[in-house]
Amino acid sequence: MCPLIPNGIISSGWDFVIAIILGMAFGFILEASGFSSARNIVGVFYGYNFVVLRVFFTALIVAMVGLLYFDYFGWLDLSKIFILPTYLTPMIIGGVVMGVGFIMGGFCPGTSFTAVAIGKIDGIVFTIGLYFGIFIFSEAFPLFGDFYTSGDLGNVTITDATGIPASWVAMGFTVVALAAFWGTMFVEKRVRKNMTEYKF
């Protein structure tokens, strides 16, 4: 049955209406969880606020486990969903660059939009930075065009690459995430004792 749009159950004319509705839900959840403040987000790297880890990993395991159940009951055709293509080296480099950008800027693109929405100047500046970053990338593209498409593994899943069944992958992520939730609770308590200027 699902996915609905690729299977033609919802006509693609509704695409953009659905996009706005889903986007609104996304923005609302991000802002309501406190992602419109860069200091909340970056807290995950210094141990004083693990809201990113909690929201991100809870979302990840809920979505993973949910997809498996939908697949099992036959409501979703897993072969029809989009699998992000893997370009190994460019993705590692890109992730490293994003990681540095994350620490310096304190946002990621999605959260910076919500920061703009509630009037954070740092969010606006970060978004402008994103714009220039992508512009620089496009202009300089001929310099590293070959690198950009190197390490192409195609649209592979974790199961294709490692042979671990999807349900074990979900299980692994769930166990690690739950352990992290309990562990970080204690880390956060200890770190927060020493901080005075930050309002939680």
């Binding site: 540095v100 800027g105 946002f107 999605g110």
Partner: peptide
């Protein structure tokens, strides 16, 4: 730093085929 971070994130997201929401989460 927000501007530099944004630029790095923009460049990195093109190499990574997506950012934290598109690639890492979804």
């Amino acid at each position: 730093f927000a501007l530099i971070g944004g630029m790095l994130f923009g460049i990195g997201s093109q190499f990574g085929r997506g950012c934290t929401s598109g690639a890492a989460l979804s």
